[in-house]
Nucleic acid binder design. Structure first.
Lengths: 335, 335
DNA sequence: TTGTATGCGTTATCAC
DNA sequence: GTGATAACGCATACAA
């Protein structure tokens, strides 16, 4: 027999393995392994020779073998409702920045804003033995299933009771919006909200700040879509009561509000000032450019990733709340 | 010795493994394995017992072990310039839809529109022994490195010469734009392009269609940003020559064009009609709503994933070209 | 500094 | 229908 190994199992004819590199370098596989892991404990000559062979063969240590023996996968699971939503894209960017530096990769799955899909996604990730996981806007009232030792980090959970989370201070966001509208002299305010905890918190902060100025606000509700924003604005305008400012719980919905105002011939900010929420890329592109309460999505992604990393390293971690930030643009007029 | 296995290597204390399930079910690990893979060849009683223990233990077969022996990872690598760009989000959605049905997962990496990062990203993915890979808008003039047997599928490559690709018929897109502008009676047209192959192809189709009507067009160039769109429109308007239609190579840049026209007091589509490209979600939110040449991003993602799957299965695959589609909105006026 | 041997969790082969 | 067992690619304890 010329060749020692003839595989009875139908195995992987991948790019050359550690054995081939070892054979051609005239060393044992242990030495090759050391070259790729241990910094020291291998002679410069040997290292050079091995590295050379490895390069010409295009060898890279397989994560499969490495992770199997190490008990880690260097994979972090990520569940988002849907990748197309720009805000989530920004978060993913932040997560990636952190993980890249640690040599970890992202295993991506979508939950489509649906509890069942979310659990399925989590199971998929678990099968791949991810070291940790981040789930954005979970629809579950508890963390997805996980083997002992593994923790999920949640970003902006819709429901409470989730263990380890990164969230936005929505009440503060509402306060910022109110302050801005009062600053530009508005007195007749309205809030366009939506169902769910977040919208409620934003309104609470908004109302609290108005109360300090002895003001109250009218309210109506949409579903974060542009169309619902148009309808909400129409509803508000049908009422004869004066109206000179609208705070909207999301930028997309704010786009609808702007359109409805425009159709009615009302000027923004001349007649009505408008503030959105999230500060999605869209906000700066609307006409007029939309003032918005910024959700620091990138930073929240960074924080979630770091939290997850800490959890993986066995350390404890605490929930984190991020402060929103007002981004002033044309829709609330010049200072 | 009460316990047979005491691990000298610091191994993975993950959720219980196949051995524990086997022991508690009173069967061998081979049988457990069969329960989770083979449909037949295991008695109903045994199957039920094993399944029960597995559930209570929260056992799921680890992909690490499974893939090691099978020589596949059930992972597909995906490299995108940046996740925040909505069009890429749509593509990812399409890819995911296909992979989900096949039980495969997405390993995500960003190239940041940079050749070096792209190679790094590819190496990351390769380490995880992805079965295949998709790279969107590569900045390389060849495929990223890959072990023999692995092929990368490219979507909309900027440079030619890439082996297996899914692309848009950009020339046809240009023709569609021209047809629409002619249809609404425009005669004085301009193109706002950008550097790169795609923009050139779009302009070529645009010009070809105009030529058939014995018309020519003026041109200027931006960089796909909103600001560059504003500047481009200003440049075009400085010229005294009449202008009643602008075709823009990207929706974001078209947003800038719309703004510049608005600032000058020109009406869209009354004075100037505008057509964008891509039909990003943004297009429908601008004022006026932007007519755009739609790039079927989701479908292209689906196609790329199917192509990759076919490649993985060892079949051959051919490049695919998608036809764009005109999405008519307010910026080119009513039919 | 280097080689040998073992085990990571799983599937597949071969007996039974 | 079921149980041993080799093998997948690799890292590491230990011996040399």
């Amino acid at each position: 027999m010329p060749e020692p190994t003839s595989s009875p199992v139908l195995a992987s004819p991948r790019g050359s393995g550690i054995r081939e590199v070892a054979r051609l370098s005239g060393v044992s596989i242990a030495t090759v392994s050391r070259v790729f892991n241990d910094a020291a404990s291998v002679s410069p000559q040997t290292r050079a020779r091995v590295l050379e062979r490895a390069t010409t063969l295009g060898y890279e240590p397989s994560s499969l073998g490495r992770n199997l023996v190490r008990g880690r996968s260097e994979l972090l699971g990520l569940i988002v409702p849907n990748v197309s939503f720009p805000l989530y894209g920004e978060m993913i960017g932040g997560i990636e920045d952190v993980l890249g530096r640690q040599g970890m990769s992202i295993l991506l799955a979508s939950s489509h804003d649906d509890a069942a899909s979310e659990v399925t996604a989590a199971q998929h990730l678990l099968r791949h033995t991810v070291d940790g996981g981040i789930v954005v806007n979970s629809r579950l009232d508890t963390s997805p299933p996980a083997p002992r030792g593994m923790n999920w980090v949640h970003i902006s959970p819709e429901y409470a009771g989730l263990p380890c989370r990164v969230e936005l201070d929505n009440e503060e966001g509402g306060r910022l919006a109110a302050q801005e509208l009062l600053r530009v002299g508005r007195r007749h305010l309205a809030y366009v909200g939506a169902r769910g905890r977040e919208s409620g918190e934003r309104e609470r902060g908004f109302a609290a700040e108005l109360r300090r100025a002895n003001l109250s606000h009218r309210r109506t509700e949409g579903d974060y879509s542009e169309l619902s924003g148009m309808r909400a604005a129409q509803t508000l305008l049908e009422d004869a009561a004066p109206l000179d400012a609208i705070f909207v719980a999301g930028d997309l919905m704010a786009a609808g509000v702007l359109r409805a105002l425009h159709v009615r011939g009302l000027r923004v900010p001349g007649d009505v000032a408008v503030i959105g929420f999230d500060d999605a890329p869209l906000a700066a592109l609307l006409y007029p450019r939309l003032t918005s309460v910024r959700q620091p999505a990138h930073a929240m992604g960074v924080a979630a990733a770091e939290l997850s990393l800490r959890l993986i390293a066995g350390h404890s971690a605490q929930p984190l709340t991020f402060p929103p930030e007002l981004v002033r643009r044309e829709s609330t007029g010049p200072p």
